[in-house]
Write a protein that binds this DNA or RNA. Structure first.
Length: 594
RNA sequence: GCCGGCGUAGCUCAAUGGUAGAGCAACCGCCUUGUAAGUGGUAGGUUAUGGGUUCGAUUCCCAUCGUCGGCUCCA
């Protein structure tokens, strides 16, 4: 059983679903004319969608929560009953959304979660207190099984009916419930911790990046501290690529309309592309992807089977129109740099090539401190291009690589893009949240469109396999995830400033700069805090900036050739010889995984 | 794009239908300091932008931009 199925089978899931009913009952008490839509349990709670006469306020949520506690105290039993479609329509005569659902159940089509079904479904209703809901269940026996101290309504937000943006916008109330108040506390603490680690907040506090109304929304300005981290990450990325058989390529930011016609992007991706620029009567588009350029590099000369595999990598900056409402810090922006690569190989090389790229990806992700990684294999969808036997060979190779790498993975049947199957890698961060980073995608479309070939042993032209691969995804998004994963306390090798030297009094200044000079010569990133502040204030500021090492220097240290080390976690090893500190730091600086 | 909230100094936030205030940061001093904020002073704002209502708007209304929570979409 998958994690999801286990959850949906659990008592907690029933409790959440039941609490959604209780909430709906409370909302209808308050707004008898309200219309109810759907209210499922979700990963960490539940929601219910309503059409109400006015927007809800936080005060309304408090009141609804109070009403819910009363209903819970009433120990209302959940009574299940199967009904005919006619009867159901009578029960929900004044609930148009429910009528729509009943019609769906009657004719197949959609179930109450909006999933397509082929056959007419059994229609069941659950009654608890005065509230009757169209619902498949299951529920807890009675509302008394819900712990009133472990319930909390979280927020209200807009949501489209049936998730369709052409349908009416409803009000969705999100709530959560747990088995015990302690679990609720823990959940709320985790939310608080997520806020403390929010990359937008830390980005400001650590002076990493900004965006600016005048520059344009979704366009990121990397400040020196952020750019330093990016540079270090990129340098590592570059070294690893060069060491593993990649070639670097560079491509322009715009390309002629005909290029995007050949690639097909003007056909299926146009709504994400910026308006064309006219140059000497020709239209040019800002690139939303790098692939077409890499294909042209491949095509620029006749390729022999001996040349393959070819691996072209580029940190390619692309621009995509994203609707304003979806933009989010560094995670979703309009201009970003993909760490892109395209592999071209012969069919017989394909399994090895997948093995290679999977291993390579996993090693890089681990080096950045992500060691919990899950894989998702997506296979051929209904609408697809390319030969089914190629699809199946590719899928088999992807799956074989996952097995060989000993990865835990899930298969998303039919979840591939129209042009090929893929593996996505998701990492868990320090708070256990999953983020998709890497993607390894077959492409049966572009080699065809650009007519890529290589000359085989037989002297004939053959079509190569092509694999797209992004490892970190985009530098922007990856940086955002890195910030949140480490809560701003980057591992030493990535820290923009690795050590701050803190002279206690002015007379220690010369020695402070002498120490700084030695550390810099050894390749460390160091600053001397020469402000006329007290040592305590300097330590406080260095702690807030999450600088890994603070080196306090006073009379004793100066006399003995020492530094007094304090680490950002509060650990205080105290005075040591400068040489000893340097030896210790060298080891940590070189360590990729912290 | 849609629903709802928010937009006051670099940052975090007060206040009011009668021409805006604090702390931190910045700047200028004093203090010369031993493991998370020493101290005095100075400067800093067309209250996001544009309209409207009003004798008077930063406050009320509308639009635009930005932003936050979601929805839809996604690296």
């Amino acid at each position: 059983m998958s994690e999801k199925e286990l959850y949906e089978d659990s008592q907690l899931y029933r409790m959440r679903h039941s609490t959604a009913h209780v909430m709906a009952e409370a909302v209808l008490e308050k707004f008898p004319e309200g219309k109810v839509a759907i209210g499922p349990a979700i990963d960490d709670g539940f929601y219910y969608d309503f059409d109400l006469p006015r927007p809800l306020t936080p005060e309304d949520l408090k009141e609804i929560e109070q009403r819910m506690r009363k209903l819970i105290a009433g120990r209302e039993h959940f009574e299940r009953r199967e009904v005919s479609a006619e009867e159901a329509k009578q029960i929900f005569a004044d609930q148009p959304f429910k009528i729509e659902l009943i019609e769906g159940l009657e004719h197949g089509g959609m179930d109450e979660d909006g999933n397509p079904t082929d056959q007419p479904q059994v229609i069941s209703v659950y009654k608890s207190g005065k509230f009757v809901d169209l619902c498949r269940g299951p529920h807890v026996e009675h509302t008394g099984m819900i712990n009133p101290k472990a319930v909390k309504l979280m927020s209200v937000a807009g949501a489209y009916w049936r998730g369709d943006e052409n349908k009416p916008m409803l009000q969705r109330i999100y709530g959560t419930v747990w088995e015990t108040p302690e679990q609720l506390e823990e959940y709320l603490w985790k939310l608080e911790e997520a806020k403390r680690r929010d990359h937008r907040k830390l980005g400001k506090e650590l002076d990493l990046f900004s965006s600016n109304e005048e520059v344009g929304t979704g366009l990121i300005l990397w400040h020196p501290n952020g750019a330093r981290i990016r540079h270090l990450a990129e340098r590592f990325w570059e070294d690893e690529h060069l060491a593993h058989g990649y070639d670097f390529v560079y491509s322009p930011h715009i390309g002629k309309a005909s290029l995007w016609e050949t690639s097909g992007h003007l056909g299926f991706y146009k709504e994400n592309m910026y308006s064309p620029i006219e140059i000497e009567g020709q239209e040019y588009y800002i690139k939303p992807m790098n692939c077409p350029f890499h294909l042209h590099i491949y095509k620029n000369s006749l390729r022999s089977y001996r040349d393959l595999p070819l691996r072209y990598a580029e940190k390619g900056t692309v621009y995509r129109y994203e609707r304003s409402g979806v933009l989010h810090g560094l995670m979703r922006v309009r201009g970003f740099t993909q760490d892109d690569a395209h592999h071209f190989c012969r069919p017989d090389q394909m399994p090895d090539e997948i093995d290679f790229v999977l291993d390579f990806s996993l090693n890089i992700l681990r080096a950045f401190g992500f060691d919990k990684i899950r894989a998702f294999l997506s296979t051929m969808p209904e609408k697809s291009v390319g030969e089914p036997e190629h699809w199946h060979a590719a899928e088999a190779a992807l799956e074989a690589s996952l097995k060989r790498a000993n990865m835990s993975y899930e298969v998303d049947e039919g979840g591939g893009a129209f042009y090929g199957p893929k593996i996505d890698l998701k990492v868990s961060d320090a708070l256990g949240r999953e983020w998709q980073l890497s993607t390894i995608q077959f492409d049966f479309n572009l080699p065809e469109r650009f007519d890529l070939t290589y000359i085989g042993e037989d002297g004939q032209a053959h079509r190569p396999y092509m694999i797209h691969r992004a490892l970190l995804g985009s530098m922007e998004r990856f940086f955002g995830i890195l910030i949140e994963h480490y809560g701003g306390a980057f591992p030493v090798w990535l820290a923009p400033t690795q050590a701050v030297i803190i002279p206690i009094a002015d007379r220690h200044m010369d020695y402070a700069f002498e120490v700084a000079g030695k550390l810099k010569a050894a390749g460390m990133r160091v600053k001397v805090d020469e402000r006329a502040e007290r040592m305590n204030a300097k330590i406080r500021d260095a702690e807030k900036q999450k600088v890994p090492y603070m080196l306090v220097i006073g009379d004793k240290e100066m006399e003995q050739g020492q530094v007094a080390l304090r680490k950002r976690n509060g650990e205080n090893p105290g005075p040591m010889l400068l040489a000893d500190f340097m030896a210790m730091a060298k080891e940590e600086v070189e360590k990729k995984v912290s």
